[in-house]
């Protein structure tokens, strides 16, 4: 089993191949549809983002509410293509890891190759399982968005599969 820790530098990701099983640990941020829209609007205005994109990872997830005493609720991936319109700009600003499910567009893959980024798949519909690798969760932006708010997660050995690697190797196009 390959293990990778944040920050996700180009060097750490370069050797990963589509199909590799990887456990990642460290800091990742949650963002899905509405948060992406806002991040892109902030970038367009030249404003500062709620977190530094350099060598960062974004998990496409809108978790269910945490039971009392729990870190987070169910937290599996949402379908990634809905973020395709926004992802290339984030990648060009330093984002290196995206975690979601389902295929990506050509323009996202081109931006990944350009920036040495990797797209990981988490198991869709396995939100209970995925949540067990989340050690802490802190809401850091857009709290009005509820489940779609941006959270800073600390994860330990989150089980992922390299779906598209930094050379464009693509598990969806076998």
């Amino acid at each position: 089993m390959i293990k990778i820790d944040s920050p996700f530098t180009k060097e750490k990701l370069a050797g990963l191949k589509a199909g590799d099983k990887v456990n990642i640990s460290g800091i990742i941020y949650t963002a899905r549809d509405q948060a992406h829209k806002r991040l892109i609007e902030m970038l367009a205005k030249g404003g500062e983002l709620p977190f530094d994109l350099t060598d960062a990872g974004i998990y496409y997830v809108g978790p269910s509410p945490a039971h009392p005493g729990c870190v987070i609720g169910s937290a599996g991936p949402t379908t990634s293509y809905r973020m395709d319109a926004y992802a290339p700009a984030l990648l060009d600003h330093g984002l290196k890891v995206m975690i979601g499910k389902g295929p990506r567009s050509e323009s996202v893959i081109e931006a990944m190759k350009r920036n040495g980024a990797v797209y990981f798949a988490a198991i869709g519909g396995a939100g209970a399982l995925m949540s067990t690798s989340i050690v802490s969760s802190e809401l850091i932006a857009f709290d009005d968005l509820g489940t779609e708010a941006v959270r800073k997660l600390i994860v330990k050995d989150m089980p992922l599969i390299v779906a598209i690697d930094s050379k464009g190797g693509n598990l969806y196009e076998r």
């Binding site: 978790p63 269910s64 169910s74 519909g125 396995a126 939100g127 209970a128 399982l129 067990t132 489940t147």
Partner: peptide
């Protein structure tokens, strides 16, 4: 495993409920 965990640890099967 997810199905088992959800029942055992009382976590919804999927976050999209």
């Amino acid at each position: 495993d997810n199905i088992e965990l959800a029942a055992e640890k009382n976590i919804p099967l999927c976050q999209d409920t």
